[in-house]
Nucleic acid binder design. Structure first.
Lengths: 161, 161
DNA sequence: GTGGGTAATCTCGATCGTCGAGAGATCTCA
DNA sequence: TGAGATCTCTCGACGATCGAGATTACCCAC
């Protein structure tokens, strides 16, 4: 591989990280604007993602998703429920489980904030053809897969949670 | 715009967020493996980025970068210095400033962990031509610019820090 | 059915991270 | 030289997270 090609790969890696930092900062802003902390936002995102994919989110699965001990998860849910972003519903099919439902107000707040970002991103995508966007999408899928695999590699022991 | 085109834009937006979540998880793993918390990792990344761009990082600028109050920044630096990831050096040119220098061990740990990820990402990029990667790079730059602008929009008042 | 093992969530007390307020040291510039 | 601004740190308080263990519900062999 030429030096230029290697350089381009490095640049793209750095850009991916930079993008992550920036999107993380957007999340931080949202948190700040709504009196939440970063963990709370990560939790809301995880719950919304679960809702999008049709799976009901439970307390335990949320704890796994945001990598929090069960005690911390309970406290997290207490916080979110106290400010009305969340409802805890006992699973009728399994009384041990607590199913989490985002409130309409939380959905609306998220849609307003992140919807704006999404509009801006979509607008910036107008500079690209459909074919180009298809390529980009494939690329992002590939990179996400690599990152995902890396994120789940057990480098440290999985402490009991 | 066709429905398909709008759909593709939405998919890409979601992918960007998903990628962020995954890369964030990688950071979380690194933190876990090294006995750090997420903020510590964000700080180390900020310091490394500053070093890469040639600007010396100071305590105050770090606090801005990771959005932490000054008291918290001091505590953060205490933690990182205590485990040997950091040195505090008084700026000879301005005695108020404290310049931050990452230790060789911290650099090595970061290089080992994130270097592996970067290798995997670069390997996945082999499936693309140089022209395609150039397009992807331009795209990522555009999206990063949008996210960056969004992250710095003052939706809440900038509390004194 | 009944009882033992497992799973999901919650409670409790302790520890650590974050904050606001303000002090101390240093720089800038009139 | 002195007044004000800037940078970092200290202190006490509060909030987030944790490990250990209690509680409730499910599952299945008997």
């Amino acid at each position: 591989m030429s030096d230029d090609a290697a350089r381009a790969r490095l640049d793209i890696s750095l850009l991916l990280r930079r993008l992550t930092v920036e999107l993380d900062a957007v999340g931080g802003r949202f948190a700040q604007a709504h009196g939440l902390n970063r963990t709370d936002v990560r939790a809301l995102v995880a719950i919304m993602d679960a809702a999008r994919s049709g799976q009901p989110m439970t307390a335990g699965r949320l704890g796994d998703a945001v990598e929090l001990a069960s005690a911390s998860t309970t406290a997290l849910l207490d916080r979110l429920e106290r400010v009305g972003h969340l409802r805890r519903v006992r699973d009728p099919a399994d009384g041990r489980r607590v199913v989490l439902e985002m409130s309409e107000s939380a959905m609306a707040a998220g849609a307003e904030y992140f919807g704006g970002l999404q509009r801006d991103l979509a607008a910036a995508m107008d500079a690209y053809t459909d074919e180009e966007l298809a390529l980009v999408e494939r690329f992002l899928r590939d990179m996400t897969a690599v990152a995902s695999r890396y994120a789940r590699t057990a480098d440290g022991e999985d402490a009991q949670r």
